[in-house]
Simulated assay, not measured.
Amino acid sequence: MEIAGLEIDLVRQRMRSLRLTVYAGGRIRVAVPLHTPAAAIEAFVQARRSWIVQHQQRFAARQPAAPAPRYETGETVPFLGQPYTLAVHPAARPWVELRPDTQQLWLYAPANSTAAQREAVLTAWYRQQLKQRLPELLAKWEPVVGRSAAAWGIKQMRTRWGTCNIGAARIWLNLELIKRPLPCLEYVLVHELTHLHERLHNARFWGLMDEFMPDWRLHREELKRVLLAPTATPDAD
């Protein structure tokens, strides 16, 4: 439907507040509580019209997605914000070896392995690397934020860098963060921990972020340049 001169996908569902999402490609989705009046929805969209247009223009300016990797020797793969040249070696036991001195990442896999199998080997290594780093990062940032996660997990997410289940004090981090610079990973971690103070992305939330991590905007902008998926929204939740 058209609202405030914009084509909007309107979704009514059981929720407490209105939510706006702009997807890559320019699609706009507005989710609202079941009985929200049409006038309130139009006012909500109109008040954010310039923000919507700005994000549509940003998505339109992005470069087309790169071809799907084959995980073959010579390709470039990222790790903690640095590019590494992939070197694939035949081996009966799949494993990965990082060689910072030559800026290479050696991937061992059976000689007849497929691209999907080599990707699975690298993905398992990425997960292990992120899992190893999180306890130390939590020990660093939980005292700063003044809240602790009761549990945490890692998963591949197509639309978010991180999420927080406030009731369970459980945070989830996107596996893709291991490819980004370490400060970006720390930003998302602090972001999710801050939700244990404040559920909403309101003035109080961003004020707390300023207190805990004054340069958080730099790291968020870095992540905004990354397109997670064709329908991704470039932020933590």
Rank of each mutant, 00 (worst) to 15 (best):
N174V: 02
Q128H: 07
A168N: 14
A68Q: 06
A120G: 00
K224T: 08
T21Y: 09
G146R: 01
A124R: 08
R220G: 04
L138E: 09
T76F: 08
T85R: 13
A24M: 15
A68Y: 04
R160C: 09
R29N: 13
L130H: 00
V121N: 10
V188I: 05
A60Q: 12
W216T: 07
C164I: 02
S50K: 05
I178F: 01
Q54E: 10
Q57N: 09
C164A: 13
R12F: 06
P37R: 15
A24I: 08
P83T: 12
R29A: 05
P67C: 01
P67M: 01
Q46W: 11
P234M: 14
F205P: 07
A203F: 08
M157H: 09
P110H: 06
L175E: 06
V190I: 11
V145T: 00
G207T: 02
A61R: 15
A39G: 15
I8N: 04
I52W: 06
G167D: 10
Y23M: 13
R118G: 04
P234Q: 15
E2F: 13
A168S: 13
V88W: 01
D101C: 12
K224R: 15
L107C: 07
M157W: 04
T73I: 08
A66K: 11
Q104I: 15
L137E: 05
S113I: 10
R180E: 06
P230M: 10
A149Y: 00
T231K: 10
T76W: 05
S17K: 15
L107S: 01
A60F: 08
N165H: 15
T76D: 11
V77D: 00
V226D: 13
A151N: 11
R158C: 01
A116Y: 08
P135E: 07
K131P: 11
V121K: 13
A232G: 11
T76H: 14
R204P: 12
V30M: 13
